[in-house]
């Protein structure tokens, strides 16, 4: 019963939505600039970190209790090199085995079952995992704007081509830094900031639509809609707008991210977007719901 009215509202307010999309686009541009600034600042900071000698020989994944970090220098298509961290918890599945991010495996032209030399010791590649925006990438993102990082951290201890270093966590600055990066990278902070801005935008639109349509709500109430039904109508409408926004945003990011040198959005990003939007809607709906309840139908129609 309520859904068709909500959908109609979404259609009707596509203009407002376009405005909102414009605002979001501008904030994304600002965020990208900010990101650039943060990442060069990080690069400058990291460049001052003295080189850390690696503990050698390194330890196999399974032996580190599942919280290992693999580090490898990989040539990218741009001819640059990246430092790659392994995903804590997805460590080697068993003695003599390792797992690696899918893209890394593909780039190295490996297959599951292939022998891999890690830290001078032979392992078998047992599994691959998809790393889009997971624990592997914050380390990458620290390295992205500051590719000399690889050279700094592993100066003088270059692994042979196709091989990887494995570090025990907690041994030396390198591991500590990787640990830090996996929890809070500056990119995460910027993304969180943008997400919060987006959430505020959603909440704001919701409040505006409520105030602008005070009379419409009054009419609905006069005709026999209950307060809960009116609230459901507005929430559905806002949720529809938000869903549209998430889809458009994801498509935009998919198109723009590679050019900007940013990672492409993964399922985790969509989940975060959904959570932020739901939270924003839930928060935004509290006051209006009380506002709506406190008003008589006559008040709304006035």
């Amino acid at each position: 019963m309520i859904l068709p009215y909500a959908l109609r509202g979404v259609r009707k307010h596509a203009g407002v939505f376009a405005l909102l999309a414009g605002t979001v686009a501008v904030s994304v541009a600002l965020a990208a600039l900010l990101l650039g600034a943060v990442s060069s600042a990080t690069a400058a900071f990291v460049a001052r970190v003295p080189p850390v000698p690696l503990p050698a020989p390194a330890v196999a994944f399974y032996a580190t209790g599942g919280a290992g970090y693999a580090a490898q220098r990989m040539p990218t298509s741009l001819g640059q090199q990246l430092v790659v961290a392994g995903l804590p918890g997805t460590a080697g599945p068993g003695p003599g085995q390792v797992s690696a991010p899918t893209w890394l495996v593909q780039a190295a032209n490996l297959r599951v079952g292939d022998p891999v030399v890690v830290g001078g010791r032979a392992f078998r590649l047992a599994a691959t995992y998809t790393a889009s925006w997971d624990h592997a990438l914050p380390v990458l993102s620290v390295g992205r704007g500051s590719l000399p990082l690889a050279g700094k951290l592993y100066a003088g201890v270059d692994p042979p081509p196709g091989a990887a270093w494995v570090l025990r966590p907690g041994t030396g600055t390198a591991a500590a830094r990787a640990d830090l990066g996996s929890v809070y990278s500056p990119v995460d902070l910027v993304v969180a900031g943008v997400a919060v801005l987006g959430g505020l935008g959603v909440a704001d639109t919701f409040l505006l639509s409520l105030l602008r349509r005070r009379r419409q709500l009054g009419i609905a109430r006069a005709l026999g809609w209950e307060t809960g039904q009116v609230a459901a109508w507005l929430l559905l409408e806002a949720a529809g707008m938000a869903a549209l926004g998430i889809v458009v945003g994801a498509l935009l990011a998919e198109a723009v991210a590679p050019a900007a040198g940013l990672p492409r959005p993964g399922p985790a990003d969509l989940l975060v977007a959904l959570l932020v939007v739901s939270a924003a809607l839930a928060l935004a709906a509290r006051r209006p719901a009380a506002w709506l309840r406190a008003r008589t139908v006559s008040d709304l129609l006035r």
């Binding site: 109609r8 419409q216 009419i219 109430r221 006069a222 026999g224 809609w225 209950e226 307060t227 129609l301």
Partner: peptide, 22 residues
């Protein structure tokens, strides 16, 4: 009260109060 308005009362207002989207 809402159900009463829906089932038993018909309103006509000075400003018509039609829903503009419909």
């Amino acid at each position: 009260l809402a159900r009463l308005r829906l089932g038993s009362i018909g309103f006509v207002f000075q400003a018509f109060h039609l829903l503009a989207d419909l």
